[in-house]
Write a protein that binds this DNA or RNA. Sequence first.
DNA 1: GGTGTGACCAGCT
DNA 2: AAGCTGGCCACAC
Length: 114
Amino acid sequence: MRNESFFYKVYDVVSEIPYGKVTSYGAIANFLGTKRSARMVGWALNQTKTQLESIPAHRVVNRNGMLTGKQHFGANDLMRQLLESEGAIIVNDKIINFDEMFWDPARELSFEPK
DNA sequence: GGTGTGACCAGCT
DNA sequence: AAGCTGGCCACAC
């Protein structure tokens, strides 16, 4: 049984995102089994700021590769600068090379949630 | 325990 | 083709 809530799973997955890689909310939701709970993933990330551990939430963007959650990082360009420092090419708050930076948890991670 | 929310996604107009 | 609306699920108050 998983005492950890859905949020905690999200934290684990996001924490496993390797450097220079990004993923989408829907991919995480799909990996966790609740494909239609993509909104929950974003909400979970919103709570990461309250978490003691630092979670690379900047590596999570929407399906289009757009930095929809940058406004939640406090500084407007913080998320963009973090991603750019990892090799992402961002124009208009959108990752141009999102396709080559995309990291699918369902494909990269082996453990499957229950 | 019910209501509201949320950094999305897919479908409809 | 592009924009918008609704639905969705799990958590916080």
